[in-house]
Computed example of a mutant assay.
Amino acid sequence: MTENLISVKEFSELNGLRRQSVFKVIKRLGIEPEKSRGGSENRGQTISYITDREARLVLEVIGSNRSALMEDEDRESSLPEATLYDIGVFYLLGLEPEHDPNRFKVGFANNINERLRQHRCSAPFAKVMKTWSCRRLWEKTAIECVTAGCDQLHTEVFRATSLNSVIDKCDRFFELMPRLD
Rank of each mutant, 00 (worst) to 15 (best):
M1L: 11
E3P: 02
I6H: 11
V8P: 12
E10D: 13
S12T: 05
E13K: 10
L14M: 14
L14N: 14
N15A: 11
L17R: 15
F23L: 13
K24Y: 14
V25F: 09
K27R: 15
L29P: 13
L29N: 11
I31Y: 10
I31E: 08
E34H: 09
E34S: 11
S36R: 10
G38I: 08
S40Q: 02
S40W: 02
G44Y: 03
Q45A: 02
T46S: 03
Y49C: 03
R53P: 01
E54K: 04
R56Y: 11
V58M: 06
L59V: 05
E60K: 15
N65Q: 06
N65K: 13
S67H: 07
A68M: 07
A68N: 09
L69V: 11
E76Q: 15
S77I: 13
S78M: 10
L84Q: 02
I87M: 04
I87Y: 01
G88P: 01
F90I: 00
L92D: 07
G94K: 05
E96M: 10
E96T: 12
P97Q: 02
H99A: 11
P101C: 07
N102Q: 02
R103P: 06
R103Q: 06
F104I: 03
K105Y: 00
K105M: 04
A109H: 06
A109K: 03
N110I: 07
N111C: 07
I112Y: 02
L116P: 07
Q118S: 14
H119R: 13
H119D: 12
R120N: 08
R120W: 02
R120S: 05
S122C: 11
A123L: 11
P124I: 08
F125M: 14
K127V: 15
M129N: 15
K130R: 03
K130T: 02
W132P: 03
C134A: 07
R135G: 00
R135F: 04
T141Y: 08
A142H: 06
E144F: 04
G149R: 12
G149T: 13
H154A: 12
E156G: 00
R159P: 06
A160P: 05
S162G: 08
L163Y: 03
N164S: 14
K169G: 10
C170R: 02
L176E: 08
M177P: 02
P178K: 00
R179A: 13
